[in-house]
Design a protein around this nucleic acid. Structure first.
Length: 435
RNA sequence: GCUCCUGUAGUGUAGUGGCCUAUCAUGCAGCCCUGUCACGGCUGCGACCCGGGUUCAAAUCCCGGCAGGGGCGCCA
C-alpha cells in the first residue's frame, strides 16, 4: 500500500496512513513489535512510498472527545509486525496527493499519475467507468449490440470539420471524426441496433472548457426508428445511469463532495432526471431567445451565449429537435412537408443540451439513396467520394436514427466538473499531446 | 484565425517603483513531543520565465521572445 501520511519523529510509536485501491487504513507501529530497522524505515520513508506490512487487524483506541460528546463509531487499524519497503518515493513531489494547497491544471496533467491518487480525482474516473458500464447495460437490455468502426479513414468523409491527416503506407488518410457512416452501414446490414464507444478526432483549434481534439463518443444507431424513438432511448439510458449511480456509487460522490466542500463549493446531488426530458424545438428556441430581446433569426446557429437564455428556463436536460435542414449534415432526414412558419425546410436532427452545454447530436437519417446523393450535391460534396456509403442504401434501406453523446461532457454534468480536461485521463487539446 | 489575461521556492500564493536580504500556506530536512488521527511545537531549506530597455533604484514600468490560462470563432 502507499503511504498517505505519517507522523514525524523518532519516538517509540508511529502511525502511518496507508492507501490502496480499496481504501485507506492506519498502521500502528510500536517499538518491540517490529525491529528497530523497520521502525526506522516507517519513520523516515517519504510520502507515497510503497510498503508491504504484515500484522493483525485490531480495533483502534478511540480518539479523545470533549466531555459529553458521543464517541465516534469504532475503527480498525493494522498493528504491524513486519514491514517491507517496496519502493521509496522521491521528494519533493511535483504535486501533493494529500496537500491542502491547490494545484494548477497544467501541473496536474503533466503528473496525472499522482493527480489520480487524489481521492476526488480517483472517484471521478471510477464514476466514468460506471457511466460507461450502466450505459452499456441499458442499451444491451434494449437489444443493442456493440460494434467497432475503423478510426483510419480514406477521405474527408463528411466535410464540415477539419480532420487530422496521417500517412497510411503510401497514401494519405485521416483520423475518423465520427463513426457515423459506419454505424449506419452496420444497420444497413441488419445488425439493426448497434452502439459504439470509441474515440473521435477533430482538428479544430478551439480552446474552451468543453472541447478536446480527441474525445470518446458514445454512439448508437437504430433501424426502423425515428428521431423521437432514439431520443426516448437516450433519455431512458441517461435516467438509468443516474439511477444506478445514485443507488450504487454514493461513496464516490461523497469523495468528490468532500473535496468540493473544502473548496467551499456546493456538494453535488445525484437527482435522477424525470422522463420525458423537455422538447424545445429549434423554432421554439429561437422564439424564446428573441423574446429575451436578443437579435437572432431563424437559420442562425444557437451559440453558447444563446443557450444561456435557454438554460434560464431549462437548467437540466432538454432536447432541441427539428433543426433547419441547412444547418444539419447531409445524412439527416427531412420531410418536404415539415417547414417552419417562415417556410424554411426543417430536418429530423436534434441536440440534447444540459443547460448551456450540448451533450448530444443526433437525428433520423436519410435512407433514400437518391436524396442522399442530392444532399451531398447541395453541400458541395462530391457523391463519388461517398460511393462506399451510398451503395449501402441502394439495396433496400430501413428508416433509421441515432445519436452521438460526449462521454466526458456527461461526466462533467454528473460531477460538476468545470472543465472537460478534468474528466479525461490524458486529454488532447490544442497545445497538449503529452503525456 | 480573433481577443483578453497570467508567468514569484516542489506546489498554491502575497506583492502595482525604494519599507524585498520577497509574504503566507503546504512540502522537504533536523530536533522535540506523541495512541496520533487535518496530530502538535521549535529550527532550518527553497523562488521573482528568458533577453533587452527606462530609472539613482525594477518582481513591479516598456519592448521582444518563450510558456500557460480564459473567452470567441470554428466544431455531427
Amino acid at each position: 500500500m502507499w503511504i498517505c501520511r505519517s507522523n514525524r519523529g523518532k519516538g517509540a510509536v508511529c502511525f502511518i496512513k496507508l492507501r490502496d485501491g480499496t481504501g485507506s487504513l492506519q498502521a500502528f507501529i510500536k517499538k518491540g513489535n517490529v525491529s528497530d530497522e523497520e521502525l526506522e524505515i516507517a519513520q523516515t520513508a517519504s510520502r507515497e512510498s510503497t510498503f508491504q506490512i504484515t500484522g493483525e487487524i485490531a480495533k483502534k483506541r478511540p480518539p479523545k472527545v470533549p466531555e459529553g460528546e458521543p464517541l465516534p463509531p469504532p475503527e480498525y487499524e493494522i498493528v504491524a509486525s513486519k514491514i517491507i519497503i517496496l519502493s521509496l518515493a522521491e521528494t519533493p513531489m511535483p504535486l501533493g496527493v494529500t496537500d491542502k494547497v491547490e494545484v494548477g491544471m497544467d501541473v496536474r496533467l503533466d503528473n496525472r499519475f499522482l493527480d489520480l491518487r487524489r481521492k476526488h480525482i480517483n472517484a471521478m474516473f471510477k464514476l466514468r467507468s460506471r457511466i460507461l458500464q450502466y450505459g452499456r447495460e441499458h442499451l444491451i437490455s434494449e437489444g443493442f449490440g456493440e460494434i467497432n468502426s475503423p478510426k483510419i479513414i480514406a477521405a474527408a468523409a463528411e466535410g464540415g470539420t477539419n480532420l487530422f491527416p496521417i500517412k497510411y503506407f503510401d497514401r494519405d488518410a485521416y483520423l475518423s471524426q465520427s463513426p457515423q457512416l459506419y454505424k449506419q452501414l452496420a444497420v444497413m446490414g441488419n445488425l439493426e441496433r448497434v452502439f459504439e464507444i470509441g474515440p473521435a478526432f477533430r482538428a479544430e483549434k478551439h480552446d474552451t472548457y468543453r472541447h478536446l481534439n480527441e474525445f470518446i463518443s458514445f454512439d448508437i444507431e437504430m433501424a426502423w426508428a425515428s428521431d423521437e424513438d432514439v431520443m426516448q432511448v437516450q433519455e431512458r439510458m441517461i435516467s438509468h445511469i443516474w439511477s444506478e449511480i445514485k443507488s450504487n456509487d454514493q461513496s464516490l460522490i461523497d469523495d468528490i463532495n468532500e473535496f468540493r466542500v473544502s473548496e467551499e463549493k456546493e456538494p453535488i446531488v445525484v437527482n435522477v432526471p424525470s422522463i420525458p426530458f423537455p422538447r424545445v424545438s429549434y423554432c421554439e428556441a429561437i422564439e424564446l431567445i428573441q423574446n429575451k430581446g436578443i437579435e437572432i433569426n431563424w437559420g442562425d446557429d444557437i451559440e453558447a451565449h444563446h443557450a444561456d437564455m435557454l438554460a434560464e428556463k431549462y437548467s437540466e436536460f432538454y432536447f432541441i429537435p427539428k433543426w433547419p435542414m441547412a444547418m444539419k449534415p447531409f445524412y439527416i432526414f427531412h420531410d418536404k412537408n415539415e417547414t417552419s412558419a417562415t417556410g424554411g425546410q426543417l430536418s429530423r436532427g436534434f441536440d440534447l443540451n444540459y443547460g448551456r452545454d450540448e451533450m448530444t447530436s443526433g437525428g433520423q437519417r436519410e435512407h433514400r439513396a437518391d436524396v442522399l446523393t442530392q444532399n451531398l450535391i447541395d453541400v458541395d460534396l462530391n457523391p463519388d467520394d461517398f460511393d462506399f456509403y451510398i451503395d449501402g442504401f441502394r439495396y433496400g434501406a430501413p428508416p433509421h436514427a441515432g445519436w452521438g453523446l460526449g462521454v466526458a461532457r456527461l461526466l462533467m454534468v454528473l460531477t460538476g466538473a468545470g472543465n472537460v480536461r478534468e474528466t479525461v485521463l490524458f486529454p488532447r487539446d490544442r497545445r497538449r499531446c503529452t503525456p
